[in-house]
Design a protein around this nucleic acid. Structure first.
Length: 347
DNA sequence: AATACGGGGCC
DNA sequence: GGCCCAGTATT
């Protein structure tokens, strides 16, 4: 029996009951697929429910503000997904009158939808014969067929996409795609795959050659940059000074405390003597408290983050700085490190 | 072709 | 500490 059929059979018996598997509404599928990009099901699930409740249709989504979407996205990471969703929702509202497209060709034109997501939405919502290739599919194919071509090389991506296309069950693309991914996520896991109970191990290269630990192959280790963030806590009664970040760096368009970034870890009073601290010092400013240094790890950056509480601020506010009531902070999309600290500090 | 972009879970 | 997760956009 073909691998595809075996996995579909396995899928029927072992699939998880996930909300987006009960619909063929392309808008709902889209919501789930964007949220699940580079994100585990367990982490994305509550976000999916919140988004669907707040924006039941793409027209509702299109009417949202970016602040609102980002605040709802808070904590999920890769925030460009949220920003791109709003762009796409508005485009669908304008171009398609609020009818979310379900063909691969229309989908691929939309912001935030790449080859994988277009194939997922098209197959799940309209049963279009497009094979999905995500991290799960790479792993299953590499192990089963013993492909050592790197999955993230240009050549490798082409090979795997081609293999996936060839083995696609063209009668049942939606089922086939779901089965491939679910199998990869639940059984053919990155670490400790459950080969002991695997229904296709007899035909599996990696099982036969004891190579599950070395397949798939991936190149390009990410380089990590270290940064030093000194955040200023400036609070008057029930208001706190906040800053809206711009584009071109992490956390684009999100909200943070006034930030002084330094080249290295230095004493607090030296931090306050740097030129970028100028807008916040002077007058009767004094240091009230200093937090520990938190290490916050991102994909390409290691942040060393410290919070400096100041007293006696009386300067003019520059562009993108504003005081906000503490009670209204929940309306602002905060990076996780800011959210965690403020939650602790303000309670 | 390489790099940027979050946060969390697992080993 | 390193790897990976229902990847995409940008350089």
């Amino acid at each position: 029996m073909q691998l595809s059929n075996q996995l579909v059979q396995w899928y029927h018996q072992h699939k998880r009951d996930l909300p987006w598997r009960h619909t063929t509404n392309p808008y709902v599928i889209w919501l789930s697929e964007i949220i699940l990009q580079q994100t585990r099901v367990e982490q994305g699930l509550p976000y999916f429910n919140r988004f669907l409740e707040k924006y039941p249709t793409v027209s509702d989504f299109a009417a949202a503000t970016e602040d609102e979407v980002l605040a709802l996205w808070q904590g999920l990471g890769y925030y460009s997904r949220g920003r791109n969703m709003l762009v796409t929702a508005r485009l669908v509202q304008e171009l398609h009158g609020g009818v979310f497209p379900s063909s691969w060709e229309q989908l691929i034109k939309l912001k935030g939808i790449g080859e994988y997501t277009a194939a997922a939405i098209a197959s799940f919502s309209a049963n279009e014969a497009k094979a999905v290739v995500d991290g799960n599919v790479y792993r299953v194919l590499a192990r089963y067929f013993g492909i050592s071509e790197p999955i993230n090389s240009t050549q490798g991506k082409k090979i795997f996409q081609q293999m996936a296309d060839e083995m696609l069950d063209r009668e049942n693309p939606a089922l086939h795609n779901q089965a491939m991914m679910e199998f990869g996520a639940m059984l053919c896991k990155p670490k400790n795959p459950a080969c002991g109970i695997c229904p296709v191990r007899e035909g599996c290269y990696a099982f036969k050659h004891n190579a599950t630990a070395t397949l798939p192959v991936k190149i390009n280790k990410t380089k990590i940059r270290e940064r030093y963030f000194n955040y200023l806590l400036i609070k008057n009664d029930n208001e706190i000074l906040m800053h809206k970040r711009g584009a071109g760096d992490i956390w684009a368009n999100m909200y943070e405390l006034p930030l002084i970034e330094t080249e290295q870890l230095m004493e607090v009073h030296h931090v306050l003597e740097t030129p970028s601290a100028k807008p916040f010092i002077g007058g009767n400013i004094r240091i009230k408290a200093v937090s520990q240094v938190y290490k916050h790890v991102l994909t390409h950056q290691r942040l060393y983050v410290r919070f400096i509480e100041l007293d006696g601020f009386e300067n003019e506010l520059e562009q993108d700085y504003f005081f906000t009531e503490v009670k209204k902070l929940k309306n602002l999309a905060l990076p996780q490190i800011i959210f965690i600290f403020l939650t602790k500090f303000l309670n």
